[in-house]
Amino acid sequence: MNPAPANRSVHPGDRVYRVHWVLGTDRLRAVCHCSAEREFEDPVQLWEWLLSHPDGHVAPQSTSDSGATGTPERGVRTA
């Protein structure tokens, strides 16, 4: 048998969006290529937030102050 392809869980690239289904929950964690993260319960709202980059996107270290990281989709910009 042939070697397995390289691990595909993280793909390189400058503009890669990642969405993780948070284990043991019904939540989705969106990770923007700018490192901003946010949790959602609705994939439609999730993509609206991811694709609104850079609007509403703040780096993880500052999101703890704003409460953006780890919060559900309430207040998400849906322009």
């Binding site: 595909r8 869980s9 993280v10 793909h11 690239g13 400058d14 503009r15 890669v16 969006y17 990642r18 969405v19 993780h20 289904w21 948070v22 284990l23 290529h33």
Partner: peptide, 17 residues
């Protein structure tokens, strides 16, 4: 089983694991 989704916007590829 939960999935992981990644989109390489520049390459135009969707990955679902």
């Amino acid at each position: 089983t939960p999935i992981t989704t990644e989109v390489d916007d520049e390459a135009g590829v969707v990955h679902v694991s």
